[in-house]
Design a protein around this nucleic acid. Sequence first.
DNA 1: TTTGTAGTTGACCAGTTCGGTCAAAACAAG
DNA 2: CTTGTTTTGACCGAACTGGTCAACTACAAA
Lengths: 223, 223
Amino acid sequence: MIDIYESFENLNEDKKQSILNAGFRIFGEYGYSKASIEDIVKEARISKGSLFYYFGSKKNYFLYIYEYAANIMKELVDSPGKNGIPKYMEKTDFFERLEDIKERKMILAFLHPHMGGFIKKAPFEVSKDIFKEIQLINQRLAHERIADFFDNLDVYKFKDGVEPFMVLQLISWCSEGVVNQIQIKNLMNPESKQNEIDYNEVIQLYDQYVVMIRKNFYKEEYL
Amino acid sequence: MIDIYESFENLNEDKKQSILNAGFRIFGEYGYSKASIEDIVKEARISKGSLFYYFGSKKNYFLYIYEYAANIMKELVDSPGKNGIPKYMEKTDFFERLEDIKERKMILAFLHPHMGGFIKKAPFEVSKDIFKEIQLINQRLAHERIADFFDNLDVYKFKDGVEPFMVLQLISWCSEGVVNQIQIKNLMNPESKQNEIDYNEVIQLYDQYVVMIRKNFYKEEYL
DNA sequence: TTTGTAGTTGACCAGTTCGGTCAAAACAAG
DNA sequence: CTTGTTTTGACCGAACTGGTCAACTACAAA
């Protein structure tokens, strides 16, 4: 990321975030080719000229926000703890580590609500040559993260026959599901704010599921 | 659904399914306005002229496949048993009912792999006036289905403190997650068939999760 | 063989939308 | 004021849009 884009990077933070999030949302919803600059600048509340002034082309803009997103994801994985060790590694309990990740994920979801969807859809959109490798990198990162998560973990606390990896998977699907559910509920309610998500509501519901899972998958002596 | 569309309905089954599925996939992926007829007829492997010969307009085509999908969903809910009673109601055990629904869902997913995504996205796409009510109907149907599912069910078999509705929700998210996971795995594998899903693989993985959930959420005497 | 009919095609149409440009306006700081 | 930096939206040619239609195929009836 060279400083070709300094005109963009010198913008104030609110505007930058708005421009990034607009890209995440529109590209994430329609994909690269079907997402129009018009849609994006309307969402970001800037003029078309400005976007081309900052990035030069649609492709550059896409690559820029993709790289931005990838960096954020990497930071989330590396989770820069105080002493070089990822912060959540200090805990050895499954659900305590989970809490730590939850917190970081929530902050991210608050800053960039549509980044997840964008990252998911992006690799399948532009010329395969470039993105096949990026996709592989992402996959590798995900695997490493999972491996890290289980490193030095108190797996013995789970009941016999309960596979900790499956539990992590289940909870991950659960968190996605909870967000979706709240989102749909909001869309049904006409007086709710357009795309805002009440994360307190999300966390509250999510926690209910985690509690239920913990209570039944952990050995009684560790509850 | 009047017989204005008899030219379409007289087509052989394969062709009809192909045309329906193309609509489900393309509308489901891009939404009504961003999905082009060109995309759809290419996916369905028919000519543009034919599609307009069958349906007259893009809007008619969309409404037709939406109504088709809604009817299928309704049938899935009503689940026409032999004697008027939905077939799965014969069983009073949570997981036995689930098995019954799983089977029916798998058949549906095999016939119309992208119908779910289409149904989810459709109501937010065209003019709100028409679709707000449709959406409400869908919501009501879903609620009824859930109410039916819990009607005369052996809820006592669950451990104390386990909320059966949450378990159903969890399993539902789980099945979505499993399908996604297999799909991504296939996309990574370059030699796999483009959009085909190996449902045996899906079921096998899904069953693992259900077994784990059943084993830990049911009282021991009912295992 | 000829004729009639239903089904299918893709080149073509006019209108819109696309990514991208640019002259002018707005702004900032002397 | 001057000078330099941002920001704007009308505008451009090209691409794409939903929709049309004359020509064509397939096949059955006569």
